[in-house]
Design a protein around this nucleic acid. Structure first.
Lengths: 191, 191, 191, 191
DNA sequence: GATGAATGAGGTTTCATTCAT
DNA sequence: TATGAATGAAACCTCATTCAT
């Protein structure tokens, strides 16, 4: 267990350093050495833990996706009506632990890299599919069949677009405001 | 003028090759040599025409932004009501000449690179500002003041989100369908 | 002594793993980790036992040279005439315990590395000298003085050449056949 | 033609530098930078010409093998009897242009590397086969069928063994002496 | 005795860019 | 205008080795 612990701690440290460093310099520009420096480690040790730069990026995205999943579970726990559950999806995506410039930046880099990396592409597909399912499930209960797909696309694209904008932001973000705005968009979409 | 002409022709060829090559390989991965090969030229000649890789990317984005501007002018020419003009913005963004996987892909790479390049960042800001103004101008005539910003963000983020998704698409896109869907989102937003 | 015993056992295991791993991957390509894995140990423990990669290689060669020496002693025990003793040298070199692809392979790598490593170079010189002496001692009794050196070189080079070829072999070797062929070459050389 | 010329000149220069540098440091130890320095070029330019370190080694061996072929043709031109042609093979292998420490050294490294590189292995097989054919063709005219294979192996292994020894030599070699010694071995083998 | 963890050192390779032609 | 030739710079990654446990 002690052994497992060290690995996990180091993993987390390196991943956090990755988020910061990638945000600051851009994924394709940032070097292993920079990330390592950020984590107070050596470039070699990143390879020791993650095998390669791509492996590190994958692990980092997995980490963020996991955070999203946790937020989702948390939010769903108290949502009872379809509308509340739509709110819940938005709340999770714009959760305090996630909706932060550095992470949005990473997310965007992830989107841009996904089509060129099998490993990232897979993660991307899975996540996108999950969000889609959540939206569809609730919208079907609220709207006539022919309106569901338009609404879903409106919501999902909105969400992506917000992240995209957030990644370009100079100052810190306001997750509370983002959630409220998202609620209003939800209201708009389900009339 | 003959000289100017040749230069323009070459520029266009190189830019088209860039769109294709960047789409195929990713901006940060594609090499000058690959782009050159795609254009049937040499890497050295790209530098001759555009000064550097960044210069080429900038020129390419300028080219796409210009196409967008043209489409905008075209669409606005026949739009008379605010709603029609909102449709017009959407129509321009999802114009047949623009809404195509390779170009969406480039657009996404552009977004991802912008924060790390002054030259790209500037282009990005200008374009974003223009679209924002167009939306605001029309929405102000249609909605009460307190609803304008939410609506604008809903629309603009939707638009960005659609491009983002399109960039990940495997098959060819359907611009007509995209425009119709966008109209429906406009309708939704302005009630 | 118990301590000594464990150390010896471990040494032997690691050396055997070295022969296999070097044969499979090549001396300059094989890594400590690969050798360790082959032995079911860790790379760190090899350093514990042999100090360094070069130390391991040296120990391994010492081991093979020792096997050769043993075979020599064994063969000489029953050889009485000069011709028989020449046969004995050949028999020892192509002994069942030595003339095997993996070991020939190692031998060749040893030759190739020797000029660039003091420690290996020393081993190489000593062994070569010993074989040379054995040959000369017997040939002097069989041939006129002016023919001795030619004969010796013919025999010794033949022997080296056979090992070289054996190292390139795909299938298993036939030591019996190799010994017979060598006898015939001896016969040829001493008329 | 001018274009072709520059490439060829550079190729030759780089190959010569390779022979020297590999001899001095060993193939697996020598760096591209060292070879480049020896040639008065940059490491990058070696890759420009040969694609990779392995590509350079292959080209270098091809060059040596070609020299051998030329020597063979030259020697065969004046050889009329079977015995003379056997001499010719030996003369070619120990030709003044080939039998030199640095080249023998390279040859040995080549032998040692061949089993681990498809490209080198192929070259090795082809060369070995050619020499074998030459020997067999002549020996069949001189010896009873059952003695041919032994003789061929004696000669070919002798040749390889001489190169092997030469590679370990400290001082310069004496090709004339080597050829004479080889003739005597030929005489010995064909009685 | 044994090994995960960690790293310094260093090599190959890639690539944008320059320049002579 | 166009491009082979050439290279400096730098990144990723590998690996032998060390050390605390």
């Amino acid at each position: 267990m002690g052994r497992k612990r060290i690995r996990d701690i180091r993993n987390e440290e390196l991943i956090e350093a990755t988020v910061i460093a990638v945000h600051r310099r851009g994924y394709s520009v940032v070097t292993m050495a920079e990330i390592a420096r950020e984590a107070g480690a050596s470039a070699a040790s990143i390879n020791y833990y993650f095998g390669s730069k791509e492996g590190l990026m994958e692990a980092t995205m997995r980490h963020l996706l996991n955070k999203l999943k946790q937020a989702m579970i948390r939010e769903y726990a108290t949502a009872t009506t379809p509308r509340e559950r739509l709110y819940a999806v938005m709340n999770a995506n714009f959760d305090d632990t996630l909706f932060e410039v550095a992470q949005c930046s990473l997310w965007m880099q992830f989107w841009a890299s996904a089509p060129y990396s099998q490993r990232l592409s897979r993660l991307h597909r899975i996540n996108r599919h999950r969000v889609r399912s959540h939206f569809l499930a609730e919208l079907r209960r609220l709207l006539p069949a022919e309106g569901v797909e338009t609404a879903r696309q409106a919501l999902q694209c909105y969400m992506d677009g917000v992240w995209l904008q957030a990644a370009q932001s100079d100052g810190p973000l306001d997750p509370t405001k983002a959630r409220l705005a998202a609620h209003r968009v939800v209201d708009l979409v389900i009339s």
